[in-house]
Design a protein around this nucleic acid. Structure first.
Length: 724
DNA sequence: TTGTTCCAGCTTTTT
DNA sequence: GCTGGAACAA
């Protein structure tokens, strides 16, 4: 292996970043400038040229997907196994660290991870037993407070409220929540980070060991780090000056969940010997798109300064479409996509990006009506589904009886006659005795407290859990899962649920067994976990990708946030209206507005060749017709990069007063052919009855109630309908 | 224990 | 205007 394989394919700036000796470095990597490439090649350089062992490298990312990709690419480039290298997410690495040092961290051996949903449930429960008014202190807000405190490294005991009663209550719940988690061996996401930080900070030996071990610490998406993550990185690299961070202040879009863009500025002060490298060569977009993006982001005050260049030609101008309403907007977008596909292009190369998830519906409807395959990102993930979480709760409780979150979840799921009253009694005793729910249940049982009926139910519950746990010892993972899913009665329970829902749930449970079958168990895992434990941690920390990856042959729909890191030849940014984008809730302060502008920048820089931006003059929002003004961002893009598209020259724009009519489909049935009540047949959906007619000309569509396929809206110009 | 009805709330998301 | 959750009734 010689140097050339590692640096030949790089440009000057990239090469400089990759080939410097181990030291602190800040790589300002613009969109599409080969950021991941630099990280991968940097690691390769460290191993091959600086002779570092993979074991001596720490690389941190934000998503599992990024971590996986980086490891894979390093292995591919060097043709080695990088298994001993610590590459992972902040949470994943903190988890591994805590498993290895659970004694020092004062965590029980089998501690378990809870996700945000379980966290909220616990807090709600807790507030009820504490008698906290959930009107004045909405549980969501309390959870937000707790996590924000933890992100800042503040424990309940260090939280200061002063005379503020409201604040005092928040802290009181925080403290109680901490106690509850400690007692039941539960660790939430923020806790993983905070606990890892504290353990390292307070244990000189450990700190010395890890500082010594990691010759270079690399961080991806540094602009997204929060206070505690940066503090942890600083601990690890203090005195060594070996922190290599890559980030882009212009793409910081997660400030609202604690990311501190200031970390980038602070880094420059706190690592005075660092080298600063700017990657400004863009390999993604054509000239006009890039120049327009540069112009937009230049409107932000707090930036480190960076201007992307491309060797590519100017290419298309950005197309701007002002739609009459959101229907029209969706129609326009879908039409353009159809045209593009008809010209022989791939659907998978098209993305529709919106500010909020609710906007996807219009596009889905139109795509569906035209029979265009599409995929929406960012829905419920596999491991987040109720039925899956219930099944996992059984496994959790079996391996750790103290897990109150799991206990609450399944004590009466499926219903087994343990009602609210009984559970409340158990909760009371648990609170009184400061014990776990499981222990409280046993106490009450021994005290002959329950009515015969409840007693029976509880006994059989205990028998079930213990029985499952015993049987499991001998079984391979997937058999355990299968066993649990069947014997817990979950399958039977969901089979009874009517409609497709129950059926899907049963299928998902079967899929869970499948997932367990395919789960790769590394017996020598550094966490030192058993197969089930590892599977459960995996489920909690990697609940399944929502990030777009395996692009099937379909149009990609996602929020601007989830588009970060991706690229598409053709991009539609929709809903560029004041109040929507920038969001109404961000326009009040400069920081919020700048983040929105960065979001817009992120969206624009996703486009490789064709960028469309659209707005609607009228939009239904929360059931009300609104007439938003064009987004300020559209005005911030120099007009020379824009080209207005007018496709409705021959459509008279209705006056504002008459707009309501268009929105109310049934009043506007103009079709001569299809009247309400008309029976029709469709080649795919079969026979049905026309319920509503809407729009005219090319936009005319009808709603049909199909006997087998249910309600559908169909565009008349595409749907092949026959009157019966 | 389940089904119904009412009511609040309503960016962005990973782990 | 829709949805999810909680309160209530049967």
């Amino acid at each position: 292996m010689d140097v050339t394989t590692i640096i030949d394919s790089l440009n000057d700036a990239q090469r400089q970043a990759v080939s410097s000796p181990t030291q602190s470095m800040l790589v300002l990597a613009g969109a599409g400038s080969g950021k991941t490439r630099v990280l991968v090649h940097r690691i390769a350089w460290l191993i091959k040229i600086e002779n570092l062992l993979p074991h001596n490298i720490l690389a941190v990312t934000f998503t599992n997907k990024a971590a996986k990709e980086m490891r894979g690419r390093v292995e591919e480039l060097l043709n080695i196994s990088a298994r001993s290298m610590w590459i992972g997410t902040f949470h994943g690495l903190a988890h591994r660290f805590l498993r290895q040092h659970n004694v020092e961290a004062a965590l029980p051996d089998g501690f378990q991870i809870i996700d945000s949903e379980d966290q909220l449930r616990l807090v709600k429960r807790l507030m009820k037993t504490m008698g906290v008014d959930d009107k004045r202190w909405p549980p969501k807000q309390i959870v937000w407070f707790i996590n924000a405190q933890k992100d800042e490294g503040i424990r309940a005991r260090n939280s200061v409220a002063g005379d503020d009663i409201f604040q005092q209550q928040l802290i009181e719940v925080y403290a109680a929540y901490e106690t509850l988690c400690t007692r039941s061996g539960l660790v939430d996401f923020a806790e993983l980070l905070l606990k890892a930080y504290e353990t390292l900070r307070d244990n000189e030996e450990l700190l010395g060991f890890y500082r010594n071990r990691f010759e270079q610490v690399l961080v991806d998406e540094f602009q997204d780090t929060n206070t505690i993550q940066y503090a942890w990185l600083r601990l690890l690299t203090e005195g060594r000056d070996n922190l290599f961070v890559v980030g882009d202040d212009d793409q910081s879009i997660y400030g609202w969940r604690g990311a501190k863009i200031e970390n980038m500025f602070n880094f420059q002060k706190q690592y005075p010997n660092h080298q600063l490298i700017r990657l400004e060569q863009n390999y993604r977009s054509t000239g006009n798109i890039l120049k327009a993006s540069n112009a937009l982001i230049a409107g932000n005050e707090s930036r480190m300064g960076k201007e992307l260049r491309t060797a590519d030609e100017d290419g298309d101008l950005i197309s701007l479409y002002t739609a009459f309403n959101e229907q029209d907007e969706a129609y326009f977008v879908v039409e353009r996509i159809r045209k593009w596909v008809a010209e022989g292009n791939s659907r998978a190369h098209v993305a529709i990006l919106y500010r909020s998830n609710a906007q996807s519906r219009q596009f889905e409807e139109k795509l569906m009506a035209t029979g265009t395959p599409y995929r929406v990102y960012g829905g419920l993930r596999f491991f987040d589904r109720m039925e899956i979480k219930n099944a996992l709760a059984y496994l959790n409780l079996m391996s750790y009886k103290g897990n109150d979150a799991a206990f609450e979840r399944i004590i009466n799921t499926p219903t087994r006659g343990i009602g609210n009253k009984t559970i409340d009694e158990i909760r009371q005793v648990a609170k009184l005795e400061e014990s776990t729910l499981w222990a409280a249940m046993i106490t009450l049982l021994k005290a002959n407290h329950f009515t015969p009926r409840a007693e029976n139910a509880i006994k059989s519950f205990i028998l079930l859990i213990n029985g499952l746990a015993e049987e499991s010892i001998e079984l391979p993972l997937f058999e355990q899962v299968k066993n649990v899913v069947e014997k817990s009665g979950l399958i039977a329970f969901y089979k009874k649920e009517k409609g497709d829902k129950g059926e899907t749930r049963v299928e998902n449970l079967e899929e869970l067994v499948n997932a367990a079958k395919q789960f790769y168990f590394d017996e020598n895992n550094e966490e030192g976990l058993s197969e089930v434990e590892l599977f459960l941690s995996h489920a909690a920390l990697e609940s399944g990708d929502t990030q777009g990856d395996d692009f099937e042959e379909c149009v990609q729909l996602m929020t601007l946030h989830s588009a970060k890191g991706l690229e598409f030849p053709m991009v539609f940014m929709v809903g560029l209206e004041e109040g929507l984008f920038p969001s109404q809730r961000s326009v009040d302060d400069i920081a919020g507005l700048e983040e929105e502008r960065r979001l817009c920048y992120v969206g624009m820089t996703r486009a490789m060749k064709h960028l469309f931006m659209s707005q609607a003059e009228s939009r239904r929002l929360y059931g009300k017709e609104t007439h938003p003004r064009a987004s300020r961002f559209l005005k911030e893009i120099p007009p020379k990069f824009l080209q207005e598209i007018r496709v409705r020259a021959n459509i008279t724009q209705p006056k504002i007063g008459s707009m309501r009519k268009t929105a109310k489909p049934s009043t506007l049935g103009t079709s001569g052919k299809y009247k309400i009540g008309q029976r029709v047949s469709h080649e795919k959906f079969g026979a049905g009855v026309v319920l509503q007619v809407d729009g005219d000309g090319a936009q005319e569509r009808v709603q049909i109630n199909f006997q087998s396929a249910g309600l559908k809206w169909l565009m008349l110009s595409y749907a092949k309908l026959e009157t019966l």
